[in-house]
Computed example of a mutant assay.
Amino acid sequence: MNNLGNENYKSGFISIIGRPNVGKSTFLNRVIGQKIAIMSDKPQTTRNKVQGVYTTDKAQFIFIDTPGIHKPKHKLGDFMIKVAQNTLKEVDLVLFMVNAQEGFGRGDEFIIEKLKEVNTPVFLVINKIDQIHPDELLPFIDEYRSRFDFDEIVPISALEGNNVERLLELITNYLPEGPQYYPADQVTDHPERFIVSELIREKALHLTREEVPHSIAVVIDKMERKENDVVHVMATIVVERDSQKGIIIGKQGKMLKEIGKRARIDIENLLGSKVFLELWVKVQKDWRNKLSQLRDFGFREDEY
């Protein structure tokens, strides 16, 4: 499909913003139809902007999934907040996503103050409506509507898919006429190496205890396709303390083996090939507060 010459074709950049753990990545993966943003029940999973591209015969949607806005505790946190705020200035439409189970919070107040500074159309997207009684929805909407003049208010369930098609229709109405920026079969602008590292990090997040997750980075040391079409991936999981290294490795290496086993399945689905995955664990003390190491691990402020 190529719509470069279609005068009525629409395209635009859409930022998904919201407090941590409201379901931004779940929504993005639902629309795109495959996993490009990692999901976790632990907040602040998303650290970089993830561009998801969804193409139809009428429009191309370029979604930017931003880190959840939260009070930063280290340089990595500062970076994540800047990424989220900067995208508001660059896009054609903002989706402010909230969790129907949570209600209005101080984090929402902070985001709304930022939204008042932009001229971009803003939708309120109320996610996880499958988790509440329908009678709770109207008071919830009134609470947010009293604080900001949203262009549209759309309740959805990203997990179940409820009302997601309707949301996409409404987004199309607001997008400007424009070219198809990406080929129709492209779903993200991130290289494979980035997504592979994120899939490994996701499995480590799912499987480890509370003190580990935000201290984890994953570096792809080597990724190459061999003659027999098997992709050989060598990756290092970086943590901040020796105790965390022990947790990631587990007794007799069982935890590391399980992380690798689960990650390999997702990586094979992504690449469409058999994967041989080798994982190591390395301690880098206090890496989240060291700018040089943040840059080494792909958190480059000058790119945003």
Rank of each mutant, 00 (worst) to 15 (best):
N21H: 07
V283F: 05
D135V: 10
T55W: 05
T188L: 07
I126Q: 05
V164R: 01
R288A: 05
K71C: 00
Q60L: 09
I126L: 01
P155C: 03
N99D: 15
A217R: 06
Y181P: 07
R225T: 15
Y182L: 05
L207F: 08
K226G: 12
I69T: 12
E136N: 11
L271K: 05
L270K: 10
I237L: 13
T45W: 00
A59F: 03
N48F: 04
K114A: 15
R147N: 01
Q34G: 13
V275W: 12
Y304E: 07
G103K: 02
I112K: 09
G12K: 04
I32F: 02
V238H: 00
H232F: 15
R201W: 02
K251V: 05
F104I: 12
K261R: 15
V118H: 03
V239D: 06
I69F: 04
V275G: 00
V118Y: 07
K89E: 14
V122R: 03
Y144T: 06
G52L: 05
E143A: 05
N269F: 02
R19C: 10
T172R: 14
D151K: 15
T66E: 01
K75V: 07
V212T: 04
V83L: 05
G52I: 11
G260S: 12
Q284N: 14
R147P: 00
I248R: 11
P176D: 07
R47G: 02
E278T: 08
G253K: 07
V219Q: 13
R201G: 06
M1K: 07
R262H: 09
K251S: 14
V218Y: 04
D130S: 07
D92S: 14
V118Q: 03
K35H: 11
P121R: 13
E90R: 15
E202I: 03
I220K: 01
S15W: 07
A84K: 07
A84T: 11
P121K: 14
H206G: 11
D130R: 06
E102H: 04
M80G: 10
T45E: 09
V125A: 04
L168I: 12
R300I: 15
D266Q: 08
K226H: 11
I111D: 02
A184R: 03
S11M: 10
I247F: 09
L170V: 00
F150L: 08
E211L: 06
L168V: 09
M80P: 09
T56I: 05
I216G: 07
R209H: 14
Y54H: 14
G272A: 08
F150A: 04
G33A: 11
D108I: 02
E227V: 12
I156N: 03
L175G: 01
L137Y: 03
D221R: 10
F61I: 06
I64K: 00
